[in-house]
């Protein structure tokens, strides 16, 4: 058992533990922080397998962007320190049961299958490789998906503004009018 292995297990335990906390914490702000740690843990795993670029993207976009966005929305919609209402026990049990069954089934399948693992001596892709491939227009290049994604992001941006900025006080319905 060398250092690399120990680091991997530490990372794995860190990620899973905070993932578990993130979905069980009763305070939503804490939940968001635990999510942040989980994402950092995943970024650590990316580092561990020498994919520095994707790890950096993970930290920049997820940790720096998405989680911050989530925390913003938490502040917009919640009082600080407010505890979430408890979920029904039966819902919890059934949810756990269904999730565990799925988990068991998938693991069973994964460990029964022999993946053709190639040796680790291949060098990791450099940022230069990624960049030229991403904007490559030849066979196997990703220029078109790249453009499509940019369109998607633009559409999402416009959509967010349209949805969130629409404020018509006269049409506001009383809450929960069933």
């Amino acid at each position: 058992m060398n250092g690399s292995t120990i680091i991997f297990y530490l990372l794995a335990a860190f990620t899973l533990a905070f993932g578990m906390l993130a979905v069980t914490a009763r305070q939503i702000f804490r939940s968001a922080i635990y999510l942040l740690f989980t994402l950092v843990g995943i970024a650590g795993i990316y580092f561990w397998i020498d994919y520095e670029f994707i790890a950096a993207v993970q930290i920049v976009v997820y940790v720096g962007g998405i989680v911050v966005l989530i925390i913003f929305s938490v502040f917009l919609t919640h009082q600080a320190g407010e505890k979430l209402p408890k979920q029904l026990l039966s819902r919890k049990i059934f949810g756990a049961l269904a999730a565990f069954c799925g988990f068991a089934l998938v693991l069973l399948q994964v460990f029964q299958h022999e993946f053709a693992v190639v040796g680790k001596d291949v060098p990791s892709p450099t940022v230069k490789d990624i960049g030229s491939k991403m904007l490559g227009t030849d066979h196997g290049g990703y220029a078109l998906p790249f453009e499509v994604i940019s369109m998607l992001l633009l559409a999402a941006m416009v959509g967010c503004i349209v949805i969130a900025m629409r404020s018509r006080p006269e049409e506001k319905e009383p809450a929960n009018s069933k």
């Binding site: 819902r91 059934f94 269904a98 999730a99 069954c101 799925g102 089934l105």
Partner: peptide
């Protein structure tokens, strides 16, 4: 929604099995 999701997952598992 969550009941739907549970039912959905249960259905997927049953079909997979």
């Amino acid at each position: 929604v969550q009941l739907y999701a549970i039912a959905f997952l249960a259905g997927v598992i049953v079909l997979a099995v």
